[in-house]
Amino acid sequence: MKKTALVVARVTASLLGSYVLVWGFVTFGITLGVAGGMPYDDSQTLLYMLAFLLFVACFCWAFSAKSALRVWLCFAFGGALMTLSGWLLAGKLG
């Protein structure tokens, strides 16, 4: 039973948790690029190209990390923090 729960925690972290983190990365990255003077489309294109490389790395880390809890915490907090920062920065720029 405990093993099943662990597997579920890691599989959901690898797909959903990574998604949350990458969402934040894309949001924050685009606004950072625009703040740095890039055209919006260029910034978005750049982040889209990097997004899936980060996703693959996060996916693998979700299984290789020692603690599943730490993985989930990093993804959730990292994703939320970057999304919030991106949103605030976009408000300043817009």
Binding site: T27, I30, Y40, W87, A90, G94
Partner: peptide
């Protein structure tokens, strides 16, 4: 994935819509 990234991470239609529209 990059080709359809707009479907997977639709940030410009949601969270960043005002910024995206302004730049458009």
């Amino acid at each position: 994935l990059v080709i359809f990234a707009g479907i997977y991470f639709p940030v410009s239609q949601t969270l960043l819509k005002p910024l995206a529209e302004k730049h458009e």
